[in-house]
Design a protein around this nucleic acid. Sequence first.
DNA 1: CTTGGAATGTCAACAAGGCTGACATAAAAT
DNA 2: ATTTTATGTCAGCCTTGTTGACATTCCAAG
Lengths: 169, 169
Amino acid sequence: MAQSSSTTIGGENLLFLTDEQLRKGIEAMFFAYRGFTADPDRILEEHGYGRAHHRALHFINRTHGTTVNNLLAILGVTKQSLNRVLRTLIEDGLVESRVGRTDRRERNLYLTEAGCELERALSEAQRERMRAAYRAAGPQAVAGFRQVLEAMMDDEIRGQYASLKDRRK
Amino acid sequence: MAQSSSTTIGGENLLFLTDEQLRKGIEAMFFAYRGFTADPDRILEEHGYGRAHHRALHFINRTHGTTVNNLLAILGVTKQSLNRVLRTLIEDGLVESRVGRTDRRERNLYLTEAGCELERALSEAQRERMRAAYRAAGPQAVAGFRQVLEAMMDDEIRGQYASLKDRRK
DNA sequence: CTTGGAATGTCAACAAGGCTGACATAAAAT
DNA sequence: ATTTTATGTCAGCCTTGTTGACATTCCAAG
């Protein structure tokens, strides 16, 4: 299966990073991401939604009451692009948008009952695949997986990711 | 950094897969993929191309002389969609399409000099980030990374990935 | 207090790149 | 001779990115 030649010299574990090995990693990332999105995509299609809707639902669920601006920063899209997705979710009664209490320019976003339900179905499908992959690979592999992914993020993003990391419902 | 609680009982290494841990993995995948595509995206933009062009260039370079049908299977898009991309690449002189030798219905695809050059620039940028991530995480993490990614792919895809895996230029 | 700028969010229009369907052509297979 | 396969093309639709223009709200300087 996946392997990378390494050797231990004087206690230091060195890695031979050939272009060929790196390319395998790149292709693995490409194909794995397809699998990663495949299950939620099927559910979304039944509802007439796309991946953008999934992302919005995920992060609204993640941080209840977040503002549009906040969401923009996390998702890395323009506000106009996000707005289109949000509008349909609000129209369909999956998301509620309340005028900000302290600053009335802001909108605080919440999932409705129906929104929670869809979010749960989507994330459950995605978790299921992740769970299977984790189990197949084992705990040590999982730790390595997370380490490499974190190292691959842009620096600013890693900060956002980290600050999201430990939050609870 | 990345961690996953595990314990060893009777030689078996068990993993506690809480929903919270799985969610962290999901978000890590999302943010890391953004980083993964960020560098090539910048280069592509300068040339007026998109990710679809990158994918085509990558896999044509990967398997010189591949047919259109082959590429479709790997990329998982429709021929119309691929054709649009391919047409521009051919017009711009990055890809050459030769009539098949044995079966003259087929078109064998090759990168031109210019195509090779752009492909190299793109993959070099991507490799550079991958290399940095690999180095930061260490060889054991890399092995785990690859294991989890492989386990995450769809079954048919994993076959394609594996058959690509060991090929040389 | 007023007024101008900054922040926030909405609407409109456009582009890339997916998709389906219909159809043409050439070559291979039957 | 007919059917199947591989490829290309046209038209049209959808999602989801983009930019530009504009409304609302807040805040701070005058």
